[in-house]
Design a protein around this nucleic acid. Structure first.
Lengths: 180, 180
DNA sequence: GCTAGATAGTCTCACGTGCAACTATTTTGG
DNA sequence: CCAAAATAGTTGCACGTGAGACTATCTAGC
């Protein structure tokens, strides 16, 4: 075997242990932003098997389906965009695709003709009902390495960071805009 | 104000609390893969101010710098690619850019003329020394919402998931490839 | 009630990135 | 040794996506 510098020796590092300070270098493997990026990418890849390969959906399309499926009533593309923190043009394209595939339908909003009310068709609802248990199962598999308590911990910790990054709408904000 | 369906009312949901089962729907806000994606994107955006706006680096370029900066010796593009879990073509392009900017340099490997040894130039080292404390500070800001203990918890939890997803090279694997 | 500014949604453009083909080199197996 | 497979790195191609312009519609202020 060629002795190449690509041989990776990571055994000396442990991402879990707190790094000593003062720091003179930055270990990517202990750097939370990097770890989040990598983890998110890996988890997404693991999930894409479900919606991508088995149902031909990409992430934006799945987000639209998931948002509409979670709610019982119709909502606008704008709502989906804000909820999923996905750019409106991305949502717009996903909506077009889903309309063509007959998975969602939209009706004009009489009160405001700029926007459309989106909702799942029967076909779309059926897909949702089939897909989301599979995705929850995948999530379970991924989190299988954690105990029930650890999962709650993780959820709580993510929640705190989300809060501090304003990823979660506060009650006041939700009140400010009158609840739909 | 127009009463639109885009008004978001999230106050009824709390991402922290465990969702009741059996589940008949999927709440994206409680779905860990979605949350990781969103969080990673948001955190990346928060950090990009440092390397992007202030130093003109994109994420791949920063990953190369960070990898070379963390190590004292030169290593190959392949190594960087594996370490950062970034596609080799992406690394290749970043390397080209950094070479042109004089931030890294590469020398042929006598033992294997397919590969090049990459290392920071003085200029690159200086940039690294300036940049990484800024990034660590940002990380600190982002995690400021967590106590010291919670940070350790988070790190441990992420570590467990990484382990189970094989994101971290095991000792055996590292041994199999003789350590560089 | 008219004009200016906001908002919903679409579309064009530019760019980053994964994939896969390709070159050059090295290893392996007969 | 030589042919076949593996590996390092580069490049062309296709595609998804964010930014921002644009249209249509609605609200607000005078």
């Amino acid at each position: 075997m060629a002795r190449t510098s690509s041989d990776i020796a990571l055994k000396t590092r442990n991402a879990d242990e707190a790094s000593p300070r003062p720091k003179t270098r930055l270990d990517l493997f202990k750097f939370v932003p990097f770890r989040l990026n990598r983890l998110a990418a890996e988890v997404s890849a693991a999930l894409s098997v479900e919606y991508q390969e088995r149902h031909g959906l990409d992430i934006p399309a799945w987000r639209v389906i998931a948002t509409l499926g979670f709610r019982n009533d119709a909502c606008s593309a704008q709502y989906v965009s804000q909820c999923t923190r996905t750019h409106k043009s991305t949502i717009s394209r996903a909506v077009t695709t889903l309309l063509n595939e007959g998975l969602i339908e939209r009706v004009e909003n009489e009160a405001d003709r700029r926007e459309f009310r989106l909702q799942l068709t029967k076909k779309g609802r059926a897909l949702y009902e089939e897909l989301f248990p599979q995705l929850l199962r995948r999530e379970d598999e991924i989190l299988a390495c954690l105990s029930a308590q650890e999962r709650k911990q993780l959820s709580a910790l993510l929640g705190k960071i989300e809060q501090s990054l304003d990823l979660i709408q506060t009650s006041e904000e939700a009140d400010a805009k009158q609840a739909y």
